[in-house]
């Protein structure tokens, strides 16, 4: 990790309408993340970790405060600008993989590159590189239904990484995996984090994930309860 701050969150609040009143999911968050971090937002259900992840991922906007991602204020981004940022700089990984079922592994990983209009030969090389990172070059013609949970999640990782994003946001990535596959997937992400200096932010309450992250941010009732960095040897 270097000292370059790529995510800066100041006084962030997020309210959702609820009946005649409102529900405050995030209540004054101040955080910053540097390039190459491998951090976890840890907390129970309803603590606000997914909401925070959505705002960092430009899928949602703050109600109050600021979230500056790669120099751009999320609240001020147009729909097109936020889509453009997601297209090139942000990757997502979900607990249920969310692969396109009718497409092959290769085509799933290729999709983000199609959006960037990258030419076919370069696209093919990038897809094969990404599948090599996750060890799935022998599955390029398989459909998601033919893959195990661990393999599916590795395809999802390849899809999020193929465009070499600055930030990858992973929401409970191991929730549907057994222990062996969880470790495999986490090791893959850790390796990519180290080799490509991609920032990984997890939303999790899984101890296995918590064991891998180098920064633990505990959220409770929409606030940062504890922010703990683990020194690496």
């Amino acid at each position: 990790m270097n000292d370059e701050v790529i995510i800066k969150i100041e006084g962030l609040k997020k309210h959702f309408p609820m009946g005649s009143g409102r529900f405050t999911a995030l209540n004054g968050i101040d955080l910053s993340f540097g390039r190459g971090e491998f951090a976890g937002l840890i907390g129970p259900s309803g603590s606000g970790k997914t909401t925070l992840l959505n705002i960092i991922g430009t899928l949602d906007v703050p109600s109050e405060g600021k979230a500056i991602i790669l120099g751009e204020s999320v609240g001020d981004l147009s729909a097109g600008a936020s889509a453009s940022m997601r297209k090139s700089q942000l990757g997502f990984i979900f607990q249920s993989y969310n692969l396109f079922q009718v497409y092959t592994v290769f085509e799933n990983v290729e999709f983000p590159l199609l959006l960037q209009n990258i030419d076919a030969s370069k696209r093919k090389k990038m897809v094969l590189d990404a599948l090599e990172w996750v060890g799935l070059t022998d599955k390029i013609k398989s459909k998601p239904a033919q893959l195990s949970g661990g393999e599916s999640q590795r395809v999802a990782i390849a899809r999020s990484m193929v465009k070499r994003p600055s930030i990858v946001l992973a929401d409970e990535p191991t929730a549907n995996l057994d222990a062996a596959n969880s470790h495999n997937v986490l090791q893959t992400m850790e390796k990519l984090n180290r080799e490509l200096h991609t920032t990984f932010i997890f939303a999790t309450h899984d101890d296995k994930v918590i064991g891998y992250v180098r920064r633990k941010i505990f959220l409770f009732d929409g606030k940062v309860a504890k922010d703990e960095k683990i020194e690496q040897n």
């Binding site: 899928l59 889509a83 940022m85 090139s88 999709f111 983000p112 959006l115």
Partner: peptide, 16 residues
């Protein structure tokens, strides 16, 4: 809708 949500997350514009 699920597929659309994923495509939007990957960076496809709503218009696209």
């Amino acid at each position: 809708y699920g597929e659309f949500g994923m495509r939007l997350a990957i960076g496809e514009g709503k218009g696209h």
